[in-house]
Amino acid sequence: MAELLQYLVTGVGIGCAYALTGSGLVVIYRVTRVVNFAQGSFAVLAALTVTTLLGAGLPHGLAEILAVLVAGLIGLLCGLVATGKPGTTPQTALIVTLGLGVLAYAVEILFWGDQPRSFAGLAGSTGGVQTHYLLIIGVTAVVLAATALLFARTDLGRALTATAADPYAARIVGIDVLRMGLLAFAVGGALGGLAGVLITPVQQVSFDSDVALVVNGFSAAILGNLTRPALTLAGGLLLGVVQALVGGYLSTSYQSEVALIFMLAVLVARAGRRGVLEAA
């Protein structure tokens, strides 16, 4: 029983990182229609930045917050490269973000080497579970709630939603669509960065951890067709918990397949349904 609880809590904790990564993908996709392949790189870059800032003597907390802001800035730059040139289609932008993900490898190895890195999180354990997992869950809950409020309760959030819903109409009322896209990339970058910062104390990060993160984040988000934040959160938690249970009771070697098979199943099932609708 205690074992089950432990798996559930660690699963939810890891799932939070997927949900954050997935939410970043959703924010960017909704506003720009671009699936940001470099989403995992934000997490890796932020986590590696934390190691440097801590090494430079900054206290915990400050180092993590700064790293998340850096990730937001990197997100903004990625958005500028991927969508800044007029006439860039979402398909083209996807390939550009693929390139940016590879460019991140070069930067990461140059500054931090190719060995896995980690840093200390919240020490101790609560009720048989590492306390840090509770921190991950708490911070994720607060940040996702704040993001939801940003979209629902502020004019900036309304403008982001408006741009996502109808870019033409957004232009008509004077919303700068490109700037909204860049803002979305910045928010997406910060959410991705937060995922990396939170998860690294319990899961080492290396330059190529981004693939697993973006795949898990995408799997979480695909449940809500890349547009529904609540379903993305549900998807992330579900994946995290199932992975923890599979790893705990079956074998850790099947863990990574969980998200992949889930993603394929959702994609194929949805395409099948679309096919039926088209035929009807």
Partner: peptide, 25 residues
């Protein structure tokens, strides 16, 4: 100001939010 063909409202937003965004500038 423009009332576009096909209306082009922001479908997921409320009427009030649509109006607010009319004064975005």
């Amino acid at each position: 100001a423009l009332v576009p063909e096909g209306r082009h409202l922001f479908a997921p937003l409320t009427v009030d939010d649509n109006l607010r965004l009319g004064a975005w500038r």
